[in-house]
Design a protein around this nucleic acid. Sequence first.
RNA 1: GGGGGGAUUCCAGAGCGGUCAAAUGGGACGGACUGUAAAUCCGUUACUUCGGUUUCGAAGGUUCGAAUCCUUCUCCCCCCA
Length: 428
Amino acid sequence: MMNFVEELRWRGMLHDIMPGTEEQLNKGMTAGYLGFDPTSDSLHVGSLAQIMTLIHFQRAGHKPFALVGGATGMVGDPSGKSVERNLLSEEVLNHNVSGIEAQLKRFLDFDCGPTSAVLVNNYDWFKGISFLEFIRDVGKHITVNYMMAKDSVKRRLEGETGISFTEFSYQLVQGYDFYYLWKEKNCQLQIGGSDQWGNIVTGTELIRRKDGGTAFALTTPLIKKSDGTKFGKTESGTIWLDAAKTSPYRFYQFWINASDEDVKNWIRIFTLKSREEIEALEQEHALAPHLRILQKALANEITTRVHSEEALETAISTSEFLFGNGSLIFLKSLSDVAIMNVFEGIPQFTITRVEFSQGIQAVDLLAEKSAVFTSKSEARKMIQGGGVSINKEKLGDASQVISTADLINDRYLVVQKGKKNYYLLIVG
RNA sequence: GGGGGGAUUCCAGAGCGGUCAAAUGGGACGGACUGUAAAUCCGUUACUUCGGUUUCGAAGGUUCGAAUCCUUCUCCCCCCA
C-alpha cells in the first residue's frame, strides 16, 4: 500500500498538513473528506486537482467521502473573496448539486468494499437543524474572537465592504460538517485547497472542544501557471469538465497547450503515472521538446479520465485536422453531428443552396454571403497575401468560383482565415 | 470675464493649396520561420463592378483644385482673473 502523504509530497500536491496526520494515515485505513462548492452545475479543471487528491487517497487504501455543499453553498465561503457573494437560489443550487454529484461518480470507486467512496450532501444533515439548535450546540463552542482571527474574515473586517453575518458564520457551518462526519462516519481527515485551511481547522477545533476528539487536516497548493495567469481559464473562458460546456476537443487542447514549465508540475498532479514513468517521459521530452511528449501524455490521460477513450480519439483527430496536415478525409468520414461537434464554438454561416448551385466567386462568398470578411477588398487582400484556405487548400485567386462540387458531404465548406481562424459554411 | 492652443484614417502623431487614401511609430491581422511558443523578417491595415467612390470634429464659403485658406457652430486643453 502506498503512502498517501508521501505520494502527494513528491507530486507537489501537499501544501500544509496538521501534525500527526501522516502517522494516523500510516496506522491504517482512515476516512477523509473533501468538499466541492456547488457554485456551478459542473466542476472545472481547478476542481480536478481536488478530485485527483481523493483518487490518490482511495488508492492508498483509505476511504474517501466526496461532499457536495448543498448547505454551505447557501451561505457562501468568504475565503479568497474580497466582497460579499451573491446568494444562489435554492433551485439553482439543487441543479448544481446534482450536476456535480453526477460528475464525481465518474472518478472514484464506489464499490470496492471497505474503501468504497461515499457521496454526501451536507444539506442532508443541515436541513433538520434549527437555528437555535445550531447556535446552542455548535456556536457555543467557538468564540467570535477565534473566528475573527481567521485570515479570510480578518481581511474582510479590515476592508471597505465588510462581511455579512451569513458569510461570517460560514466557517462554523463547514466546521460542523467535519464534526458531523467525524461523529457519524468516523471521518478523521479533511482535505481541501490551501485556502480552506482556516475552515478546516475550525472543524478540528470544534471536534476537540465539543467532544474532546482528534481530527486531522491536509491542504493542497493552489495550482499556478508560470506566466502568472490564472490556471484553468483561457480566452474563451473556464475549462469545464462537462462536455456540453467545454467540448472534449477544447479540453484536450487546454492540456496540449501547457507550457513546458507548467507541464512538469501538471503531469504530476493530474495523472496517476509513477515517478519513474514521469521522469522517463521528461528525459524523452528534453531530447525533442517540439514533439510535446509530456503535454500529449498529460492530455491523453486526463481527457480519457474525464471524458472517454473515444472522445480522446476525436479530440486528437480534430486537432490534427485543424492544426496539422490533417486531411479532408477525416472530415468526410464524420457524420453531420460529429462535424458540428468538431466545429463547436466556431463561427458558422448558412448559405442557401439556390445561391450556391450556380457557383459563386470566392470573394462574394466570403464577404457577402457570409461574414468571414467585412468587405470584399479585405477578402481580396488577404487572399492575395496567401492567408485564406477553403477546405484546407490555399486560395490562389480571389475570383475563383466555388460550387457544389467543392462541398464536403454535399453540405459543408471549411474556411480558414490565417492559420487558426476557422469558419464553417453550411449550405442548407 | 479676458487671452491662447487644439480636434487627422484603430491609437499616438506628421502634413499646412495640387505630387495626400494622407509620413512615422504602436496595435491588429496575414505570410515566412517555429513546438498550435517567443523573437525576427516580410506584407496588409477606407470602399469599389478596379472605371472610380466616400474620408482628415460639423455645416457653409473661396479656388480649376482644400486635411491644408475664410466664416459659423460643437467639443477639448492651457494661461490670466
